[in-house]
Amino acid sequence: MSMTKVEKMVEDAPHARRKIPNLNSSALDRIITFGAVVVLFIFFSFTAPNFFTIRSVLSLALQTSAVTMMGIGVTFAIITGGIDLSIGSVVALSGTIAVMVARTGVPIWLSMIIGLLVGVVAGLLNALMITKLKLPPFIATLGMMMVARGVALTITNANAWPAPEGFGDLGNGTIFGTGQKFPGIPYPVIIMVAVALIFSFFLGKTRTGRYTYAVGSNEEAARLAGIKVNQVKIIVYILSGFLAALVGVILASRMVTSQPNSAISYEMNAIAAAVIGGSSLMGGVGTVLGTVIGSFIIGILTVGLTMSGANYFMQQIVIGLVLIASVTVDQLRNRK
């Protein structure tokens, strides 16, 4: 331990970096993404004559509801710095279990609740693998993705079994309809709006919501502040599993059959929606509203391109490019 070394340390005081304060940057982000939705709407209104009608807007909302709700769930996981790849398979598993249980004569409402519990259990298992076995979320939920899909295929023998009468009400019913003039708002759309409002409030206004950001932004600091990090992660993955199961039950109800092969790669669309909506896979960043907007951008592109006559392959190319572009813009903005 030489004198000079100590002296050097004593003198060592690198200059702090300085940043120009930039208020409301997240608000600006949201205005930009929301603006993109409006631009897309206007664009497709010209290219596809029937695009801007109540009927097609409602059908757009209905089609988008699944990915939106899954996206909201996975947004929580992404904010903690994790990921949930199992949600697509959990959709299939919870839906098929709800149908199979209903087929045994259990009341429909109860079989649907059992379907939701399947999602909660899958989420809990994900969380325990991540918090107790210390598996990376990517691996834990990748494993769950395969297991859940496999179980769904096994219990149905890969068949689409018809559900009993009345099972389809949730997915196919509408409210506020006035016959020919206005077909009514589908239940899944109402549920989607409720889910978005509830979880937006949960993430933004509650203590657990704030801890979700804290865990993803600086896990060690969160722990030092007395936050129960594992508890937050468990809540987040249960939430993600629950919302996937909700989508699963709704989709099964819409089909009125068990669909063990449904929602394949939906998790990727949900993650894309979250990322287009401003979530960062590095953790600490993301909002429910952003994900909803991101999901609608994907939905509008899909429906709009279809109605404009572009084929499915074209849609994939466009959505992929939009995903890459949106993250690139984010990176460029953060760099300065």
Partner: peptide
């Protein structure tokens, strides 16, 4: 007060 600050950057 920890050396690495223990602040949450995104909050």
């Amino acid at each position: 007060v920890y050396q690495d600050l223990a602040l949450i950057n995104h909050l």
